[in-house]
Write a protein that binds this DNA or RNA. Structure first.
Lengths: 354, 354
DNA sequence: GGTCAGCACTCAGTAGAATGGAGTGCCAAC
DNA sequence: GTTGGCACTCCATTCTACTGAGTGCTGACC
């Protein structure tokens, strides 16, 4: 309701939008300590933290205020404090600076991308593994959509009497295929005719720009093949065919929680590609880079936080990388890792696209 | 050491190769009960089991004998018995008949394969989900190797000045690609020449039968492209490119164990595709359909059992499906599910191959 | 000889009481 | 506003006692 610009002096007890310097330091201390130990943090421990040079009694008073304002919680009366989702949120938004990846990780990333080559899917798969290794989180990588990539090759391969395969190669190196059921027997020649026609009318365009107006080839049977071919092309361009999800390091979820039930429900979510992809897109759409606890709305992941990072190819956001961990995950590390890997991955993908 | 053919009468106390009828019934009772409850089974409970109509005292005596012979174990003195790996082994080998899938599952399988269509990878992925659903195990599907499939299409697509993509379509509908680094700039025309040459010399053959003897095209630069193209083709034919692994239902592992550590180590293994593929192949090579506990030699999976089933395409064993669960998994169910799904999958794959 | 009822025994699991200690809130003094 | 001191709370641990499921054994029975 009321907003005060008196953030220097604090008065945080009434203003939930700002915390004075010391309270910030205390919150930082509690969060970092709890991230490391997973144990409630007492005022005694906070005393040792940098930026806090007051007695435990004073810290206690501040912690009580932080609890009143919803940044901290107490599992029970005589325990230390643990951060609430709101506490993590404030920490992420205001207290954690632009951290850099540790040298070892930096080296790992460099090495990875120096040696990365070949198939895009394999690279994305391995990227998820890299991210998981770097962060001890579960990593999710959504392959870049091929919206902007143009068609480099279109091919119809007959597989059976009424079965053909449409194979397209995109300018970004992606190969997509779509099986085509033909309503009647089509001989190789007619298939080739149709393919030639498709090539002539689609090569160089993006999948989303395939011409839907059919020009007749003169032969009705060939036209029919062309028609299903065009349908297949457009299907490939649609969203469902594009989003490939790669999940790496799901075992880290078992290390993050000690309740096996939590692990199970989280893994169940991870198996649902659609849910994961939607979750990542949602968070990104809301302009967030971190969604904590219930913020992302996926109920079984209430004890998890998600870090997302867009992957830009030639300045255009297409792919996404995500990190899933417990709410007490190491946010600075995760953000740093996601950032650098996302950037490098984007560069890499831009390179191989002309 | 000594073998007795007196299996009718038993004498199982000295002969570890056979158990008399009642001991078999008792072992069956303990195994099935323990599979269901995960609790040690006492003589009182066994009394209710079918095929056992003696007093608990007699059962106790038999159970003591079964323990002496290594089929059962006691967690502690005053507890019931749980099966050992050897006990499960005997159960699987001699006591469990050819079980059928329950009607609901049968219906699920039928429905699945009636609606399965399109991309082979997607189908295999979904098959792993189906199997996991059916059995409450983690399902592993290794895609059929393309050793026997013949080349239907070979294509070279230029992606950049020194980057091309080799795309092949196999007769079984698989599409494989391999990026090719060209040592020097190659124009489209020369790429097309090389592609034509590759087509002429490889179409209709299996990947493993690619002619390695190079016939020159007359142009050294084109020859160079052909050469790397042939290398790429042979790489595709090699094992590493072929084995695709699809894992479904890994969340079931979290439900199977109550120690989160066990879950973590099992998940870690599942993330290592090579280990899993090797494991399945190993077990299959040894002629087993079930590997229990330490039998498969993968130490972190000591508390797991693996059910494997070959997938035959046109009578030739190519793919594999596997089920991973705790040693106290429901073997009859798992075997039945693996069998029927494996058979249907094989049929399906045979259909789409000409 | 195999089977069985009876009995003493074992021992995990549970519940209750005592203890220790980490941590808090409050207050008076600085 | 900060701090040391103090009383208080309550989780976690330990110990004890107890329960009960389950066993092994023995002597009797068929």
């Amino acid at each position: 309701m009321q907003t005060s610009d008196d953030s220097r002096h604090g008065g945080a007890g009434h203003n939930p939008l700002a915390l004075d310097v010391r309270k910030s330091a205390i919150l930082t201390a509690v969060v970092t300590e709890y991230i490391g130990s997973a144990q409630p943090v007492g005022s005694q421990h906070v005393m040792d933290a940098p930026g806090v040079s007051v007695s435990s009694a004073t810290i206690r008073a501040d912690m009580a205020a932080l609890e009143r304002d919803g940044y901290l919680a107490q599992p029970h009366t005589s325990a230390g404090r643990i951060p609430t989702d709101k506490g993590y949120r404030f920490f992420v938004d205001h207290l954690v600076g632009p951290a850099a990846l540790d040298p070892v990780g930096r080296q790992q990333v460099r090495q990875f991308f120096d040696h990365a080559h070949g198939e895009i899917e394999l690279m994305l798969e391995k990227t998820s593994g890299l991210l998981a290794d770097l962060t001890d989180c579960t990593a999710m990588v959504v392959g870049p959509s091929h919206e902007l990539a143009t068609l480099r090759s279109v091919q119809l391969v007959g597989l059976g009497p009424r079965l053909a395969l449409l194979v397209v190669v995109l300018s970004d190196g992606a190969v997509q295929k779509q099986s085509i059921d033909l309503s009647e027997d089509v001989d190789e020649g007619r298939l080739a005719d149709a393919a030639r026609y498709l090539v002539a009318h689609s090569l160089g365009r993006a999948l989303s720009q395939i011409d839907t107006t059919l020009v007749t080839t003169g032969d009705p049977a060939t036209d029919a093949v062309v028609s299903v071919g065009v349908d297949a092309l457009r299907h490939l361009g649609s969203a469902e065919a594009g989003d490939q999800l790669f999940v790496g390091g799901s075992s880290h979820m078992a290390a993050a929680f000690d309740a096996v039930d939590t692990v199970r429900s989280v893994l169940t979510i991870l198996e649902q590609q659609l849910v994961v992809v939607t979750l990542l897109r949602d968070v990104l759409d809301r302009g967030l880079s971190v969604a904590i606890g219930t913020e992302h709305g996926v109920e079984p992941l209430a004890s998890c936080a998600v870090v997302v990072m867009p992957v830009s190819v030639d300045g255009e956001v297409t792919g996404t990388i995500g990190l899933l961990g417990p709410t007490r995950m190491n946010y600075p590390q995760a953000l740093a890792a996601a950032q650098v890997v996302g950037k490098r991955l984007g560069q890499r993908l831009s390179e191989s696209r002309r």
